[in-house]
C-alpha cells in the first residue's frame, strides 16, 4: 500500500516538476507547481507528518500559489520566449547540477543506517508538534510572526513606491 502510494505520488511530483520546466506559459507552470506541492503533501502524510501535510496544502498549494496566479494574471504575463540563456549557466550551471545530483545519488544509494518508512509508523501528531513548538521554541515562533508582519509591510511599501515615483515624475 505504502509502496503503491509512494510511486503514484512520486511520479506525479516528478511529472509536475518536469512539466513546470517544459511549459512556456507561466500559468501552466503555476498549475503544475500546485500538482507538485499537493503530491508532496501526500508524501508528508506517508512519512507521518500529518500537520505538515495540512500546512503544505493550506500554505503552499493554497496561499502562496494563489498569490502566484494572482500576480501572473495581474501582470498579464504572456508566453515566454526561449533564448539560449547566459553562458555562465551553460558552462558552469548544468555541469554543476549534474555533478551535484550524481554525488547525492552515490552517497544516498551507498548509505547505511537509513531506515524504512511504513504505513502508520512513526506518526507525529499535531499534539506532539505543538507541545514542542509552544514551549521550547516559543521565542522563534513569535519572532517569525514579526518577520511576517515586516514582510507584509515591505510588500505594501514596495508596490506603493512605484505609484509614488510615477506620480512624482508626472
Amino acid at each position: 500500500m505504502h509502496l503503491i502510494l509512494f510511486f503514484i505520488f512520486a511520479a506525479l511530483c516528478l511529472a509536475g516538476a518536469v512539466n513546470l520546466l517544459l511549459q512556456t506559459h507561466p500559468i501552466n507552470s503555476a498549475l503544475s507547481l500546485i500538482v507538485v506541492m499537493t503530491s508532496l503533501a501526500v508524501l508528508y502524510l506517508l512519512l507521518g507528518a500529518e500537520f505538515l501535510a495540512a500546512a503544505q496544502v493550506i500554505v503552499y498549494a493554497g496561499a502562496v500559489m494563489v498569490l502566484f496566479t494572482f500576480v501572473i494574471m495581474l501582470l498579464n504575463a504572456g508566453r515566454e520566449e526561449r533564448t539560449l540563456g547566459s553562458r555562465a549557466a551553460r558552462v558552469v550551471g548544468f555541469p554543476a547540477v549534474a555533478a551535484f545530483l550524481a554525488l547525492l545519488a552515490t552517497v544516498l544509494l551507498k548509505a547505511h543506517g537509513l531506515g524504512r518508512a511504513a504505513m502508520q509508523e512513526g506518526v507525529t501528531s499535531t499534539d506532539d508538534l505543538s507541545a514542542v513548538l509552544f514551549t521550547k521554541l516559543l521565542l522563534p515562533f513569535e519572532v517569525t510572526s514579526v518577520l511576517i508582519l515586516i514582510a507584509i509591510l515591505g510588500a505594501v511599501a514596495l508596490t506603493r513606491h512605484g505609484d509614488g515615483e510615477r506620480s512624482a515624475s508626472k
Binding site: 509502496l3 512520486a10 544509494l109
Partner: peptide, 11 residues
C-alpha cells in the same frame, strides 16, 4: 514492510 527512506531522499 514499507520502502527505504533513501528513495524519498532521492526524490
Amino acid at each position: 514492510p514499507g520502502i527505504p527512506l533513501a528513495w524519498y531522499l532521492m526524490l
